[in-house]
Each structure stands twice: as structure tokens, then as C-alpha cells.
Design a protein around this nucleic acid. Sequence first.
DNA 1: ATCTTTTGATCTCCTTAAGATCAAAAATCA
DNA 2: TGATTTTTGATCTTAAGGAGATCAAAAGAT
Lengths: 68, 68
Amino acid sequence: MIKCHLSRIMGEKKLKIADVTRATGINRGTITRLYQETALRVEFDVLEQLCRYLDCDIKELLEIQPDT
Amino acid sequence: MIKCHLSRIMGEKKLKIADVTRATGINRGTITRLYQETALRVEFDVLEQLCRYLDCDIKELLEIQPDT
DNA sequence: ATCTTTTGATCTCCTTAAGATCAAAAATCA
DNA sequence: TGATTTTTGATCTTAAGGAGATCAAAAGAT
């Protein structure tokens, strides 16, 4: 299972979904899905834009969870 | 730009596309696109299966390239 | 209380991966 | 070398789910 840490990172930076939407131009629905962890895939340019805006690495955003 | 290092990793391990297809069950077209770097997005479960099979981390497979 | 902003929910449209197939190229073997 | 098997490139259709938009409710600000 792949875990997306967007909500934690945004929390740490006190960012709202609307902030990320405004700053990156990424569709709000897309960010919401990643935030809520309902997304099953990701476009490479979305991943890149998010990392750049959040000033983080891919590995900080996406992590492979060990099986439970 | 996001760089996918699948071809290099497969090369190092001397794996063919057919090998990865067989072992992971991922569609050959999907692996080919990642190998040729024509894919524009990736399903999370494909990413996970590839990392597990190749025994690598997401960061070894996907990297954000600095602008050229 | 009113106005603005944010967010959750939901809808349609569109892109592209998934999956399958065919033929050519490459590799394996007799 | 010729025959057989394997691998791969190309391409087509189908389908999944993100893109984009909208509406209403909730939250926040004035």
C-alpha cells in the first residue's frame, strides 16, 4: 500500500487545500483526492509540482507501507 | 520533469521487460511505457509492485530532475 | 447578520493506462 | 542454417479515474 503524506505535510506547514490549489494551479479535486488518500494514481507533473511547492522530495510525499 | 529510472535499474539487474511482466503481473504495455519514459502518470499499485519486485525504494525509481 | 472563503459532494468529459493482438526482431536450439 | 520460441514494438479498443466545473454547506472574517 502506498501512503500519501500530503495531509501531514500540509498540516505541518499550516496550508489549506485552497492555498495549494492557488499556488500550484493543480485542480482542487486532484489535491483533495491526494489529501484524502482516495487517489489511486498520480500524474507525474502533479507529483513534481507538489514536491516543488512543498519543497520536499518524492520520498517525503509517497511511501510504501509495509503490509499490515 | 520526473525521471523514471526503470530502464537503468532493469539494466543493472539484467532484467528484460518480459521478466518484469511475468514476475509482477503488471501489463507489459505499462512497463514498456515506464521503461521508455513515455508514461505521464502511474498507478500507485504499479509503483508499489515495481518497487517490491525490484527491491528498491520509490526514490530510486522516480526522481525530480532539475530544470535544464 | 452578512459577505467571503473553504471544502465536501457530485457530475460530465477527457486523457491515458489496461489489456489484447499482430507482426517483426531477437534469441535459442536442432 | 533453418526452425522454433521468446521478446518487443506498434496499435487498437476498453475502461478507470483524474480534470475541470458547479452547487451547497460549513467555516471564518468583517
